[in-house]
Structure formats: structure tokens, C-alpha cells
Design a protein around this nucleic acid. Structure first.
Lengths: 214, 214
DNA sequence: AATGTTTTGTTCAAAATATCACATAATTCC
DNA sequence: GGAATTATGTGATATTTTGAACAAAACATT
């Protein structure tokens, strides 16, 4: 198909497929059908075939998908068949935990800069990185070839952090602060908010319980 | 309307409305129109009115929504007009950061238990909680009145953690580990995976760049 | 009190998304 | 080598979700 517009939902599912495929590789499974993958991901088999069709034909009829090949193909499609340099703004509790977390590097997102505006934090070393003043983001972004920013400031500072990142020419932001930010067109923003997921779970529990009573 | 089935997307947006409304209260704004709220949330005004209609009529025609009233109404609808006791399983880097994070308590999710199966961690104190062996989850869940579990183990341990939680009678799980888990019907699961969001940003950057070239 | 203004709640059409079903292609088995 | 089997890719169909439009309701003004 190699189509033009790809649904956001498809992208999110592709990320799930990557997750599951990597586990399959761990278990030395070489081939999987759309049905098998669907079961593991909790979606419909056609869904998977459709999602993949946006990017090309990766399967073999009568056989299924070669796990390693499919994984490579999806990664290429998502643009994660390479590494990305990432700057983190806001070295608080969460920021520190993320800086120390190995998972980013493992998945090709390399934290190359840590920024904060608190003079007490500047100069401190966290996970092998020296904390630098946020004002110096622009200058550093060029040297370090940073393309993605992660915001882990308190909510009221998120917009300012975003401004620094945009000014530094960053083209994508993952915002962990619980507030919406405004950025110019052409800058991709994703929001990560644990609380939203807890809300969702709380709602579903309440729902299930009221269903049980009915 | 007070309708039966509520789209998942609606729930996620309600969580965003809560976020924005709380910021409005901070700024002493008392009334907001669906249009104003829509702008702040980056959605369509009809969308908002529709989302709210699932739960009742909260606005005043010709006026808009009283911010505090609306917030209260949404919280009630989501089942977050109360506190929820939460258990965390997996006291690693991320687990520690979450245990120390104030935001959960602030939003009514109280971390009352920390569990891990590593003997070196058991007995340790983190954020005022003693780390307890995961095997004792069931016994503790009753005493502590735990209703929600958060999994922050490595991916290969996530399923076991989920099993302990289910066995303990927990009805909702937020899984931070990058792997899918299987749970019986009636248990609500939400997945939080930062990497997914980074994938999404990476994809959109690649996309924007290829658009720029075209 | 009547009219005008504003903004909600809701209907209806359209767009987007998911699922079904089947023709197509690769493989296996006789 | 041909028939049977399996599982993909995709066109058609169904469902879900969104957005536009408008009638109903509250308030403001005269």
C-alpha cells in the first residue's frame, strides 16, 4: 500500500508490535502469524495486516512473518533504525530516574544533555552528565546534535522549557509535566502522564463494579 | 445523555480537561466556555460538549461552565472524587522515583505498599515505606485495603507481578514494564511506556522532514 | 416584559477506523 | 507435478468517532 496518511492509532500499535517481537526474539521464535501476534498484542489479526500494509509487504503467504525481518521493517518504518540524541530538561526526582534508566539507551534514545534552571543543581553530575543551565540549551544542542527534548519540570515551568527547546531547533518533545504546551507547527509533541492512566484504571474499576451490581 | 458505552478516547480527554481545569483554578478563572476549554486542550468544542454529555449536563447555556463545578463533576464521573490505595511492585530505579513522587498523593492515589522479590531490597525503607516480599502481597492487600497495583519490574517479571496482584484481589493494574500481561476479565489494565512516545516523536520528526523535502 | 445575545445540549451527516471475507500466493504432502 | 493447506494482502462492509449545524435555554439590556 505505502499510503499517505497513517492513523495515530496505527503508530501506537506498531510500538506494541515492536515490544512483543523483541520478546519473541528473546524466546528464539523465528516465525509468527498475524493471528499469533494479534493474540499476544490483544488486537485483531486483520488489524495487524492492515497496519503493516501502510508500509509495505513484510509477510510470506502460507507462512507468516519472519520475526527478525518484521522487526527490522517496522523499526525502519518508524524511523527507529538509528539512534536519536535526547536532551532532558528538569532534573527533579523524575528527571533523575529517567537519566539513570538504561531503557532509553537500549532503545536507541541517548540522553546526551541534562538541563535545569536551578543554580543549586547546575554543575551537579547525574548518570554521568553534568547538569547545565537551561539558558545554554541552544548552544549545547548544536554541539551535541540533539533532536529530541524531554520535559520533566514542574507543570508551571513546562512552557518555558518547551520554549528553550524550540529555540534550540529541537523538532520533537516528550512532555512528562502535567500541563499542555504550545509549540510552533512542525514540532511534534507527545504527552506522558501517569496520572491519566491511573484515572483510566480508577474509572474502569468503578465501571466494572457498577456493572457487577446491575 | 447518561449513556451506556463511553469511548476510551473520551476518558483520556476527560483526564486532559481535569488537568486544564485545575490550572484555571490556580489562575482564579471561574467560568469557561467549551470554546475556551477546547483551545486550551487542543480539541474541538463540540467534542467537549459531547464528552460531557455522556455523564450529564454540567454547563449553563449562554454562560459556559463554572470551572469548579465542572471539575467536581468530571472527577465524580471518573470515580476520582475519592482516594485510592495503591501497591507498587518492583522497587528498582523507576519504582523508587515513583514512590518518592508527590504527584500521586496529590491526585488521590496513595502509595501504601512497596513490594519486591529481591531479598536484598526487602526490609529497606523507601519514601517512608518498608519494602515487603511480593509473596506477601495478598495478605497485605487486605490489611491495607489496596485496590490498584502499579508494576515497575523488569519486563520478564511483569507477568509474575501481575499474578500476585490478581491473586490479591486487585481490580486494576498500571503496568510500567515494557511487556504485555494477561489478566482475568474484570481486571482493568493500563500500559505506560515512555518508549512508545519516543517512537511516536521519532516517527513524526522523520515524517515532517520527508514532507519538507517533498 | 420583550428582545437580543450567548453558549449549551443534541441531532445528523461525514470522516476515520476496524472487521470481515475472500482472492492470491507460498508451502507441504502425496 | 498437482492438490490441499495455510496465511497473507486487500477490497467491501460495518462500526465508531468526529465535526457542523441548529434548536433550546439562560442571561443581559432596554
Amino acid at each position: 500500500m505505502k499510503s499517505s496518511h497513517i492513523p495515530r492509532a496505527t503508530i501506537q500499535r506498531l510500538a506494541v508490535y515492536v515490544q512483543v517481537l523483541e520478546n519473541l526474539i528473546q524466546n528464539n521464535e523465528n516465525v509468527i502469524s498475524s493471528e499469533g501476534l494479534a493474540r499476544a498484542c490483544g488486537v485483531n489479526p486483520s488489524q495487524i495486516r492492515k497496519d503493516l500494509a501502510y508500509f509495505g509487504e513484510f509477510g510470506v503467504r502460507g507462512v507468516g512473518y519472519y520475526v527478525q525481518d518484521l522487526l527490522t521493517a517496522i523499526k525502519q518504518s518508524l524511523g527507529i533504525d538509528r539512534t536519536w540524541n535526547v536532551a532532558l530538561v528538569g532534573v527533579g526526582n523524575l528527571g533523575r530516574a529517567l537519566l539513570r534508566h538504561q531503557i532509553f539507551r537500549k532503545r536507541g534514545f541517548i540522553l546526551v544533555g541534562a538541563f535545569d534552571c536551578d543554580p543549586f543543581k547546575i554543575g551537579e553530575e547525574v548518570a554521568g552528565l553534568e547538569v547545565v543551565c537551561s539558558r545554554r540549551l541552544k548552544e549545547r544542542a548544536k554541539d551535541l546534535d540533539i533532536e529530541i527534548g524531554m520535559i520533566t519540570t514542574p507543570p508551571e515551568r513546562a512552557q518555558r522549557a518547551a520554549n528553550y527547546l524550540v529555540e534550540a531547533g529541537i523538532k520533537g518533545i516528550v512532555n512528562f509535566a502535567p500541563s499542555r504546551i504550545k509549540v510552533p507547527e512542525g514540532v511534534a509533541v507527545e504527552y506522558v502522564d501517569f496520572i491519566h492512566h491511573l484515572f483510566s484504571v480508577a474509572f474502569n474499576i468503578s465501571l466494572n463494579q457498577s456493572k457487577g451490581l446491575a
